[in-house]
């Protein structure tokens, strides 16, 4: 059974950083800073024009429910 996302999530009801501790806020900041610094070091020309991804429609047509 497919479950739909809570409709409130996409609206303004979910407040960013609500009830986060100082330590959690610092962890989030440092995680994002580390990741972004790493991604910025990306160099060289990609031989691919598009990202790695899987889109194989037949994989979803296994004939078995």
């Amino acid at each position: 059974m497919i479950k739909l996302y809570n409709k409130n999530y996409w609206g303004s009801d979910m407040k960013d950083d609500a009830n986060l501790t100082e330590d959690q806020t610092e962890r989030i900041k440092s995680t994002l800073a580390r990741i972004r610094a790493g991604l910025e070091r990306k160099t060289g020309k990609s031989q691919f024009e598009e990202p790695a991804h899987i889109f194989s429609p037949e994989a979803y047509d296994a004939g078995e429910k």
């Binding site: 990741i35 972004r36 991604l39 990306k42 060289g44 990609s46 031989q47 691919f48 598009e50 990202p51 790695a52 991804h53």
Partner: peptide, 13 residues
């Protein structure tokens, strides 16, 4: 950022 990361994944492969 996620798509750039998936590009890096393609480069790694």
């Amino acid at each position: 950022e996620l798509l750039e990361s998936q590009k890096l994944r393609a480069i790694l492969l």
